[in-house]
Design a protein around this nucleic acid. Structure first.
Lengths: 211, 211
DNA sequence: ACCTTACCCGACCGATCGGTCGGTCAGCAA
DNA sequence: TTGCTGACCGACCGATCGGTCGGGTAAGGT
């Protein structure tokens, strides 16, 4: 019991985020969510009009957290190489802060969901907000290529690689921990992940030295 | 209609792979699978003892396809840099060949599934077979570091990056296609993906030039 | 002709799904 | 006290879930 009275609605959002992240939308029933929040199923429908709406609200919360941490890193200060470093660090930080974020994002990306779910999440505009962030990251890479601090690359490919290397990593859960034989979300693991990815990108994107 | 009479059982596996990949285990009912295969629900249970067993069988088929293509690339011929190139190409080829593979893999990795599903897939040993492949990839990287053709890296981190950059990419579906504004599984897109990732890795892993 | 076997189906089972409904209860303003 | 309101719940709804059962049908062996 961490909080005395987290307003029930917030508690529902918390447990729903946790449950949806671990087992997916279809596998989690509304009574399971309500029960985990210490409420009856009917009380859940007092706070949210439908299961799909609850899920969409959870997604919006996650996207807002990401925006709050990644957008500040995207203001163009310093050369694109430093900006990219900051962005990668920000993405890793925000995904590491809430272990559920990466999984939820991953699911929302490649889950051809239930019809009312895609309707609800489309109405909340989460996809567009994610796309907006990625567009800005693309712009940073393009700037770097144009300025000659990065070698020419396929920007969408690099973006996919960065997203895969960050989101997938923190979404990998038991699989990742089995691979590392150590926790993924420890402070050292997070710092190492940041360092390894930044070095790989900086060195892998360096322009060819012209003799 | 590719095949005149694919033995019903194979047809069931095909449509189940497609459906499970697109919407996940919990979201797909057995009657939907059977119906898509042109059969009644009862007929599905004539071929498979349970839904979980059907899913596990689908997973095994996917893992076998991957083994068949990636393991040959892992025989140590040439230096580790070339081997890694071959492995990356093999992974991309096998994931691109069947658009369902990457999604199924991703789900099996981070889906804290239903209890009988984890039991069935544990009995089929798919996790161990995936782990065995990744262990061999790890060995290649370690050899490269030991031989000095790669700079020192955190091997699990690099492995996570490679898996994320390949599996996530081909599992991203509509999201990825929206990002590229072009199909992901076209021959050109696959070739480009291969090239971009190989260059990024080779250059990013090159040891520092000693003055 | 008979029996077996493989394959398939419709009807049905209990459980659970998302969601509704009527109503209880505490707090608060008048 | 009275009346109202937001939070909450138990009981219930039709639909669908995974799975069972008995029976039907065609092929093949003897």
């Amino acid at each position: 019991m961490p909080d005395p009275s987290p307003s029930s609605r917030a508690k529902l959002l918390d447990v729903a985020e946790q449950l949806f992240a671990s087992r997916g939308y279809a596998a989690i029933g509304v009574s399971a969510v309500a029960g985990a929040a210490g409420l009856g199923k009917s009380s859940l429908f007092h706070h949210f009009p439908s299961k799909a709406d609850l899920y969409a609200t959870v997604l919006v919360r996650v996207v807002e957290r990401i925006e709050g941490q990644v957008l500040p890193a995207l203001v163009a200060i310093g050369d694109p190489a430093h900006t990219l470093d900051r962005v990668v660090a920000a993405i890793i930080d925000v995904l590491a802060e809430h272990p559920t974020s990466a999984r939820l994002l991953l699911r929302s990306v490649f889950e051809d969901d239930d019809e009312d779910v895609i309707a609800a999440s489309a109405a909340s505009g989460v996809n567009e907000r994610i796309a907006a962030i990625l567009d800005k990251v693309s712009a940073v890479i393009e700037d770097g290529v144009a300025a000659g601090v990065f070698r020419p690359v396929s920007v969408p490919d690099l973006l996919q690689t960065v997203v895969g290397a960050t989101v997938f990593h923190f979404a990998s859960g038991d699989f990742g921990e089995a691979l590392f034989r150590a926790p993924i979300f420890s402070a050292e693991a997070i710092a190492r992940r940041k360092r390894e990815l930044q070095i790989l990108l900086q060195q892998g994107l360096a322009p060819a030295v012209r003799p």
